[in-house]
Design a protein around this nucleic acid. Structure first.
Lengths: 143, 143
DNA sequence: CTTGCTGCAAACAGTTTGCAGAACT
DNA sequence: AGTTCTGCAAACTGTTTGCAGCAAG
């Protein structure tokens, strides 16, 4: 599936006349190898480890490409850092964010999604995306 | 009810040994007179109109006090500006955010809230707060 | 008089941008 | 060769902070 994503990006890049460069390959590899919700900073450090000399501007620019290509999604939490998460085709999930240890637990709930659709419809609203974040303390941090 | 909020803040301020100043009164007045979801910038401009010479640092500092006092709540949308909304005691609502005209429609849905509680419980998570934002186009912007 | 509050400007963090040179095709 | 991409550094944005002077109690 990592290969699928690489192919997806290459296809996107080809379609837009983008060039294939060492940096983009490296950033893509690193991104695909990370857990969910990497911050740009984290990603930048990992990228530097494998391709020293890459500037963070490139990381920022490349991440925006990934978003455009549909591989990644921006996640804004309450800590002033933009994070990126992997997009699984067709799937959507939300987050439990632990304010104690910054852990992020994902969950899916179809009923909530449906209720959102109803609410939107009631207001004549056309949903493009949504986010639901629940903040609190995870099981470990409660004790 | 505006008076209630002023009293609430005064009580909070008294409890913390905070002083009552012209600036704080003015910012509180302006905040209470605004519609929901003011950005700091907007608020700052309005405050300057009535008390010229107020610095934005003071606006920032005072808004944090309002949050602490339970009058206001931070709302982070996808536009890089922190906004503040009024807190109605005991009530919680979520937002439909129009990406066309930046309108914000509020809604409440108890079922969603309950489902969130269930999800949290299932993960041993203690909810402190949550936010749900639905992005898309409002009825006006669709046409 | 004492202490907290304010305004200013400088500092900050995260992100974006302009540009000369490097690297794809 | 032509053009896109990159790295660097500078610019920017929103927010925070240090500090000297001001003002409330």
């Amino acid at each position: 599936m990592i290969q699928d994503k690489k192919n997806a990006f290459n296809k996107f890049a080809a379609g837009k006349g983008l060039r294939s460069t060492r940096q983009r390959d490296c950033i893509l590899n690193v991104f695909l190898s990370t857990h969910q919700h990497v911050s740009v900073e984290e990603l930048y450090l990992k990228v530097k480890a494998c391709c020293p000399g890459v500037g963070q501007a490139t990381v920022y620019r490349t991440l925006k490409l990934f978003v455009e290509a549909g591989l990644a999604r921006e996640v804004l939490l309450h800590d002033g850092q933009t994070r990126y998460e992997h997009v699984q085709a067709g799937e959507h999930h939300d987050h439990l964010v632990c304010t104690g240890c910054n852990a992020i637990i994902e969950f899916e709930n179809e009923t909530i999604e449906k209720l959102q659709d109803q609410i939107a419809e009631r207001h004549g609203f056309m949903i493009r995306s949504h986010k639901l974040e629940i903040y609190g303390l995870c099981a470990d941090c409660r004790s």
